[in-house]
């Protein structure tokens, strides 16, 4: 990792660890905006990692963004950081101003992440374009996903001008990065717990059945993180990113399902309680997996592209740089 990236990673980790305890999580999930956390994020510029320096951003790349998004995922951070980072990149790339404050992006007007909190919302429009909408010009119907993060319905008084940029693609990418982080945290929690929880006179991690499950989870964790980082690298190279982003959303989504199932099995009843923090992660994994296109949507799209290319282009596509 570069020095800057290391610094960004450490800042993100420190900041989430300091601000997110279960009291803050529970309050956020009940609708209280975690202002202290967001202010600290903004003070450190993490929300503007992909905004060029001339526009008051860090001017980083997607691999830098990955370390922030993964940290946000690890901590199940109940703030629209992923949305703001993604929207910032899209706005800057389209030559638009990136306003200060939380931003949102959505491919579905009935499920706009954090609309109630955002100063601007980017909505996907036809042909890889998006429109920008100020919060003042919207009607908002509050709702939440299973992660209990806001997913609000919005009504718009006007259509807005179209700008080039694929909201669905960027949304899928940031969700993949968050999932990669959350899955890694789920694995770490499981391994620790399996070493501590004693049944039949032994830590449950000594039982083969548990070991085999956690070995599977380790593989899923590795594959998910690699898929998400590959997609970030593809964006940084400026390639045609559909293959990489689709692969990331599919692979992290599948891993998310397994991680949630395995971790809840390993934790037993305590993991099913409100008191235990595992569910902050697993409820978000279920939600993120389905947002900005579930695996099915991306697999269908990717599969169509592969079929259109034909079998003889499969290997060249896999090995293309």
């Amino acid at each position: 990792m570069t020095d800057t990236r290391n610094m960004i990673a450490e800042t993100a980790e420190r900041l989430f660890a300091a601000h997110l305890d279960s009291a803050v999580m529970d309050a956020a999930e009940a609708g209280t905006w975690p202002a202290a956390l967001w202010d600290e994020i903004a003070a450190n510029g993490l929300d503007r990692v992909l905004v060029p320096a001339e526009q008051d951003g860090i001017g980083g790349d997607w691999e830098d963004a990955f370390v922030i998004l993964a940290a946000a995922g690890r901590h199940a951070a109940p703030v629209p950081l992923a949305e703001t980072i993604g929207a910032g990149w899209l706005l800057a790339r389209a030559g638009l101003d990136v306003p200060a404050g939380p931003l949102s992006l959505a491919d579905d007007r009935a499920r706009v992440p954090w609309a109630r909190q955002a100063v601007q919302v980017l909505l996907s429009a036809d042909e890889g374009c998006f429109t920008v909408h100020d919060i003042a010009a919207m009607g908002i119907t509050p709702d939440r996903n299973v992660g209990r993060d806001p997913r609000d319905g919005i009504t718009l008084s006007e259509d807005g001008t179209a700008h080039a940029g694929d909201v669905g693609m960027i949304g899928a990418l940031v969700r993949s990065c968050q999932m990669a982080g959350a899955i890694a945290e789920v694995l770490a929690l499981c391994v620790t717990y399996a070493g501590e929880r004693v049944q039949f006179g032994r830590p449950i991690g000594k039982f083969q059945a548990i070991q085999q499950q956690l070995a599977v989870l380790a593989g899923e964790t590795a594959a998910a993180e690699m898929a998400a980082r590959n997609a970030c690298r593809a964006l940084d190279r400026g390639d045609d990113v559909m293959f990489a982003v689709a692969s990331a959303k599919i692979r992290t989504g599948e891993a998310a399902g397994k991680a949630a199932a395995i971790s809840h099995q390993v934790f037993g009843a305590i993991g099913f309680t409100d008191e235990h923090h595992l569910h902050y992660l697993t409820r978000r994994l279920w939600s993120w997996r389905a947002e900005f296109g579930a695996e099915r949507v991306w697999a269908e799209r990717l599969g169509r592209a592969l079929a259109a290319q034909g079998a003889d282009q499969l290997w060249p596509a896999l090995t293309a740089r």
Binding site: A223, M226, A227, N230, S247, R251, W298, A299, R301, L306
Partner: peptide, 25 residues
Amino acid sequence: ATAGAHDAIGRLYAHLTSLRALSIS
């Protein structure tokens, strides 16, 4: 007659790219 077929090859591709990247790593 493609029901499920594109989905299937899309998923296999996603698995294969991440595996190859892990192996190269």
